[in-house]
């Protein structure tokens, strides 16, 4: 093993221990020494993991690999445990078995026999692990895929199709009182009538050209091609807007993490 990694690992271990000792001393009054040591360890460990993940920005390294693998293992088990207690124990057992409810000390609700369907399908799904019964798992998959498809078909046709068309049917002549009124009150302000009319027209035009861009079975040539090109320009303006809008929110996330390191862990700045 080369010297460099050993020195770095030793330095990190040393920093970890120093931080643990210092943080163990800063426990709130009234807590036992055991609690103080434990809290010191957890806080230091959290800071270590934070720095390990941030180190990824430099390059992949053993600390990042450690944090990443720990994160994957812990989080997978976390959801498993949570799902077991909140879904199976709290929701399923009280409806299918009095014995299991008593065993897990949850209140038995009543026998609801249709609740046997999901455990049966669940067991069919687990048949994948058996070399011969794997095909049975498809029944459960078919149930999930089928219900998903059926569930989404009319719902998305409503929300992503009909309601969107309905919202696009905008009146072009906003607050129209005749040409005389239009010219006498002409203004280029954002809330003015002229801008509103142009905006409504552009919304409808943008939607139509955007839809034209998504035509697959017609060549994008001539007027159709021009409309499609206008459509992609509108899409790009939108993507830029979405990008710009998100940037600031992401920076505040980083500020939050730096605050944890500088305030909660190192105590350099006061929260």
């Amino acid at each position: 093993m080369r010297k460099g990694p050993i020195i770095i690992t030793a330095a990190v271990a040393l920093f970890f221990v120093i931080s643990w000792i210092i943080k163990s001393g800063g426990a709130p009054e009234g807590s036992s020494s055991y609690d103080a040591i434990a809290e010191g360890f957890w806080l230091t460990f959290a800071a270590f993991l934070t720095l390990a993940i941030l180190s990824f920005l430099y390059k992949d390294n053993p600390f990042y690999k450690f944090a990443e693998h720990l994160y994957v293992g812990v989080s997978a088990a976390y959801w498993m445990s949570l799902g077991f207690w909140t879904t199976l124990v709290a929701n399923l057992f009280p409806r299918i078995s009095m014995t299991l409810s008593e065993w897990f000390q949850v209140e038995f609700i009543s026998y609801q026999y249709h609740f046997w369907v999901p455990p049966i399908l669940g067991v069919l799904l687990l048949m994948r692990l058996s070399p011969k019964g794997g095909w049975l798992s498809r029944w459960a998959l078919a149930f999930i895929v089928g219900t998903t498809a059926g569930l989404n078909l009319p719902r998305f046709l409503r929300s992503d199709f009909i309601e969107q068309i309905s919202s696009t049917m905008l009146p072009i002549l906003v607050n129209w009182q005749g040409f005389g009124d239009f010219f006498t009150n002409f203004s280029l302000s954002a809330s003015g009538q002229f801008v509103s009319i142009v905006s409504n027209f552009l919304v409808v035009l943008g939607v139509l050209c955007g839809i034209i861009y998504f035509f697959f079975s017609k060549e994008h040539k001539g007027a159709f091609g021009a409309a499609s090109r206008f459509g992609i320009w509108v899409l790009m303006v939108t993507f830029g807007a979405s990008f710009g809008y998100t940037v600031m929110g992401r920076i505040s996330l980083l500020v939050g993490r730096l605050t944890f390191l500088l305030d909660d862990w190192l105590g350099i700045i006061s929260g």
Partner: peptide
């Protein structure tokens, strides 16, 4: 433009 493009995308997605 944002509203128009999002609507066009959403109709296509639908």
């Amino acid at each position: 433009p944002n509203l128009a493009a999002k609507r066009a995308i959403i109709i296509g997605i639908g």
